[in-house]
Lab assay of single mutants.
Amino acid sequence: HNLTITQGKLFFHYNPKLCLSEIHKMEEVSGTKGRQERNDIALKTNGDQASCENELLKFSYIRTSFDKILLRWEPYWPPDFRDLLGFMLFYKEAPYQNVTEFDGQDACGSNSWTVVDIDPPLRSNDPKSQNHPGWLMRGLKPWTQYAIFVKTLVTFSDERRTYGAKSDIIYVQTDATNPSVPLDPISVSNSSSQIILKWKPPSDPNGNITHYLVFWERQAEDSELFELDYCLKGLKLPSRTWSPPFESEDSQKHNQSEYEDSAGECCSCPKTDSQILKELEESSFRKTFEDYLHNVVFVPRKTSSGTGAEDPRPSRKRRSLGDVGNVTVAVPTVAAFPNTSSTSVPTSPEEHRPFEKVVNKESLVISGLRHFTGYRIELQACNQDTPEERCSVAAYVSARTMPEAKADDIVGPVTHEIFENNVVHLMWQEPKEPNGLIVLYEVSYRRYGDEELHLCVSRKHFALERGCRLRGLSPGNYSVRIRATSLAGNGSWTEPTYFYVTDYLDVPSNIA
């Protein structure tokens, strides 16, 4: 807008934040220059609390790290170098490059900038070799853009010569660093050979998330399962459950009422301010606690030095998902009996873990797994792929695949051998790939016309006998059925096997 004052003059007093240069501009645009008398524009009460600059400061050096910015700028000295009290560095987070010096300023003089007072450097006698002032900004957020400017702080001049310097606002972004852990990993099994893994992005990506790394490792069953005799009275049979499938998407929606109208769909109840505040506090606490764990609990591995020492970490090797089922080394339970199943799973520490690289999504279907087997899954978020990966501390989750139908069934015939004193040795093959492992066998036998009897055969007993022995049988026709019990439950009964026990007292003698 054009402003013209045809008559009258300007009068400025007691404006401590208004620089004289701005008042002189007002004289020019209003056409009143030359009308004012000496005392109409006070030299001592206008701009006496402001830094009124008329020179431009330029930054000469900028260096960044993930949490620091090192700045240096060209030296500046007023005509009387004693008038320079120091520099004021202003900075704040700036997602967009549209910041002005006066953003967030209120009537009390406060604003949204963080201000650092910096002492002037030592003055050199040689004007050509003056030290460049600077400042190291610490405690910054990774991968965050900051708006920065600097200006001088000078003393009051009796001659009211307006001098000083100020830089333009520059924008500097800190470097990326390792992201925080992925949030809320959930693993479920939808079949006997697959596990579905879902997660949420890290709360602090500290860069642009480029991919996720998912490692999985087959877990050995508890050692007590191999040692305890679950045929003993009072000892509860062990059981394991597989990871249940995901709930429906509708039930997972946030901010939804727990109660549904019987007449149909209901609208979600909005969260109160107290609920939102509580969630923010919980989120802040979780982030602080995660940072504490990362800094205190997890110790970084030592990389190899120039002395030739090897990095103890196993090298990563990509495998196809079809090879995942046989990740671990199978060892027989008892070496003397080769027909026992290889369900003991000690994992070799030198073995390469299978892994998958996930790009542009937060889910993965891990296939080719062994049925009813526990897996430990390790999830890392990465925001750099080359020249070397920059990934987060791992988040861990466990899951067990679903049982395989008929995996616990005894394959092959049940054979028998009759000894003296009416002892019958029953023999059968253990299931080759049971659900988890076989903890015991149930032997059901009966003599024709009598009630059915049951015998429990422990895992250890089966390994020693290759089956079991029935003792003290009365003469007669017998039928026997056997079924295995694994961590997933009972298998199917075998087809009945028949044998006849004679009275050993009636056996004919070869003595003449």
Rank of each mutant, 00 (worst) to 15 (best):
S203N: 15
D204S: 15
P205V: 02
P205L: 13
G207S: 05
G207M: 08
N208H: 05
I209C: 14
I209S: 07
T210V: 13
V214Q: 00
F215M: 08
F215H: 06
E217N: 15
E217G: 12
E217K: 13
R218I: 07
A220C: 15
A220L: 11
A220Q: 14
D222Y: 11
S223N: 12
S223G: 05
E227H: 09
L228Y: 14
C231S: 03
G234P: 08
G234S: 10
G234H: 08
L235N: 06
K236D: 11
P238W: 14
S239M: 12
T241Q: 13
S243C: 05
P244N: 14
P244Q: 12
P245V: 09
F246P: 09
F246S: 10
E247I: 04
S248H: 02
D250A: 08
D250L: 14
S251D: 13
H254E: 03
Q256M: 04
E258P: 15
Y259F: 05
S262F: 13
G264F: 04
E265W: 13
S268Q: 14
C269K: 02
C269D: 05
S274K: 06
Q275S: 06
I276L: 07
L277N: 14
K278D: 15
E279S: 09
E279T: 12
S283E: 14
T288I: 15
V296Y: 06
V297L: 08
V299Q: 13
V299A: 15
P300H: 12
P300V: 04
S304R: 08
S304L: 10
S305L: 07
G306M: 14
G306Q: 14
G306H: 14
T307S: 08
T307R: 14
A309N: 09
D311L: 13
P312L: 15
P314R: 12
R319F: 06
R319E: 15
L321C: 15
L321E: 09
G322N: 04
D323Y: 14
D323Q: 15
G325D: 15
G325Q: 15
V327A: 09
V327H: 10
P332C: 06
F337C: 07
P338A: 10
T343Y: 10
R353T: 04
P354W: 11
F355I: 12
F355S: 09
E356P: 07
E356K: 13
V358L: 05
V358M: 03
V359C: 13
V359R: 08
N360D: 04
N360Q: 08
E362P: 06
V365T: 05
V365H: 10
I366H: 01
I366A: 05
S367P: 12
S367G: 09
R370A: 12
F372D: 03
T373G: 08
G374P: 11
G374V: 08
Y375D: 00
Y375V: 13
I377G: 05
L379E: 00
N383H: 11
N383C: 11
T386E: 12
E388R: 08
E388K: 08
E389V: 07
Y396A: 06
V397S: 13
S398C: 14
S398P: 07
A399H: 13
T401D: 00
P403H: 03
A407C: 01
E417P: 03
I418Y: 06
E420R: 13
N422G: 06
N422Q: 13
M427A: 09
W428L: 01
Q429C: 15
P431Y: 03
P431W: 00
G436P: 04
L437P: 05
L437K: 07
I438W: 03
I438R: 01
L440M: 05
V443A: 03
Y445H: 10
R447Q: 11
R447P: 12
Y448F: 13
H454S: 02
H454D: 13
C456S: 03
K460I: 06
F462C: 02
F462A: 06
F462I: 03
F462W: 14
A463G: 13
G467E: 02
L473G: 01
P475Y: 09
P475E: 05
G476S: 01
N477D: 08
R481I: 05
S486R: 02
L487M: 11
S492Y: 01
P496C: 15
Y498S: 10
Y498N: 06
Y500V: 10
T502E: 15
D506S: 13
N510A: 15
